[in-house]
Each structure stands twice: as structure tokens, then as C-alpha cells.
Write a protein that binds this DNA or RNA. Structure first.
Lengths: 145, 145
DNA sequence: TATTGTTATACTCTATAACTATA
DNA sequence: TATAGTTATAGAGTATAACAATA
């Protein structure tokens, strides 16, 4: 992945940059697995949030994903076209839609989630027992810092 | 940063996604610090590689950064225009340039590096003694996996 | 023939601003 | 007035293909 004859020491001294490299290594696998199912990591993120939080509005999901609500339109269009998600008119507010997974979307999301986890287990080999839980906990503290 | 009333558990069960969130948290700081100096993380990466590996060709740097060589043209143009880097004709191959930092570029890179490290130390507060070294080592193993 | 730097081009992701229909 | 979804648009970032000069 990286040229061993090149000195990266200045970048590697920054936690942020090494974190980025590790994330890219993970996402290479993740993106490939998603691509085999004809989807992107971004769309999977939306599926995953709606799966656990059915009925959210588009704006609520965009806030959860950290993107602008304008970006949700094309994303939900794609997921609807693939019949994985559907917009239902909101009961109490005729401006907004409530988002739900279709039965097919539920199945799709669950299967892809399992496949991604299988691919991720490749990285378990470089971790000692207990290290993964430690990593997840530390990353969580970093995120909330 | 994230809505506490929303269930992210499906995404959080994936190391790759939590790694991405943590990386974004780090990079928010990193990008802001770079922006104050009128630069981007991408351009800083190029400066950092050339600083430690003076004389590399554009193609070699693009490979080190994991981008296409065509993307280097505009990047080096910007750095040359700011007089932080210079293209020198290669001795043995008249097709290529050798890249070097100017004295100003050396100073700039060193100062920005120090500033980024200072900002990163904000995250040290969430780590117990020794945890940072362990994290850097684990990330390194992940990158090489 | 292959490679370096370059240009033109396109595609994705994301953000902003303005519009409409509701609230 | 403010907000939800939408549209148009623009800016990064990155990739591909083709070209001239050189190897």
C-alpha cells in the first residue's frame, strides 16, 4: 500500500494522519463489499440509520449523517428506486416524509452488514485478545472529545 | 457532533465506521489549523513527504500519496506559487522534475507540523498514560494488514 | 515501446442559495 | 416567520484518456 523506501515519519507522527491511513485500509474492504451489492458506504450508512430508527424525516437523517439535507434527495431517490427504502407521508406534518426500509431493504441491510463484518474480521488477526474492545472504546472517547 | 437520541448501533458495530468518525473528529481540527495557514491537509501531506524525501519526482510523490500523477500538477503549481516548493530539472532524466522545499517551505512545514501536534494534544486528555503509543502501534498493524 | 509531465474531461461528494408548500 | 423537501449550481477531490517530449 505504501512505498517502504519513502520516509513518512513527519505524517506518521500525527495521530490524525495514521488514523486516516488505517481508516482508508478498512474502507477499501468496506467499499469493495458494498460495490459488490451495487451500493456505496454512504448509502449503507443511511440504510443503517433508518433500519434502527424507522420513521425519521430526511432532514433528521441528514443531520445524523452529518451532511446537508439537499444531499439526501438523490440518495433516497436511489434507495427508493432499488426498492430498499420508501418515503411515507408524515401523519402530522404534510411538508415532510417519514423514511422506512422495505422488507427487501431490511433483508439487504442485514445481509450486507454481516458481509462487512466478515470482511472486517480480516483485521482481527493483527489484534491481540481484548484489543478490539479497547480500540472501540478509545475511538469512542476520541469521538466525544 | 452526533444526535444522542438516534441509534447508531448498526454502524458502530463496524470498526471501519467508528474509525471513520474518529478520523473525522481529528481531521476537523487538522483542516482548521491548515486553513489558518492557507493550505489543505492534502497539500500539507505533499510538503511533509518532500521535506523528508527531497528530490523525489512528481510521479513518486503521487504514488506516495496514493493519488494519480495528474493530480500533482495543480498541487505543485500552488505550492510553487506560494514559494514553498520548487521544481528543479532532473540531472539524469529530462522528462522529470525533482521536488525540493524552499527555505521558506522548510520553515512553513515545520511550524505547521508543530501547530497540528499542539492541536492534536487536545485528544491526549481522553487517553490514559501509554494508550497513545499503543494506539499508534495498533493502527500501524492495521495499515500493514 | 514505455514513462514523465501535462491537459482536457468527467464523476462523486458536498455545500450554498433560492424556490414551493406547508407550519 | 420558520421549516421540509427540492432544484440548480458550484467547488473540491480524484480518476481516465490522450498528447508531446524523452527514455
Amino acid at each position: 500500500m505504501t512505498d517502504p523506501s519513502i520516509d513518512y515519519s513527519l505524517l506518521d507522527s500525527l495521530v490524525g494522519y495514521r488514523l486516516r491511513k488505517a481508516q482508508l485500509a478498512y474502507f477499501e474492504d468496506f467499499t469493495a463489499t458494498c460495490a459488490e451489492e451495487g451500493i456505496t458506504p454512504g448509502l449503507f450508512g443511511i440504510l443503517a440509520v433508518v433500519q434502527r430508527n424507522p420513521g425519521l424525516t430526511q432532514t433528521a437523517v441528514s443531520q445524523a449523517m452529518g451532511t446537508d439535507r439537499s444531499a439526501m434527495v438523490a440518495a433516497v431517490d436511489k434507495l427508493e428506486k432499488r426498492q430498499l427504502m420508501e418515503r411515507r407521508p408524515s401523519d402530522n406534518d404534510r411538508r415532510s416524509y417519514a423514511l422506512f426500509l422495505t422488507p427487501e431493504g431490511e433483508q439487504f441491510t442485514q445481509r450486507l452488514h454481516e458481509r462487512v463484518q466478515e470482511h472486517e474480521s480480516h483485521f482481527d488477526r493483527v489484534m491481540k485478545p481484548g484489543e478490539k474492545e479497547w480500540l472501540l472504546d478509545l475511538l469512542d472517547r476520541v469521538i466525544r472529545a
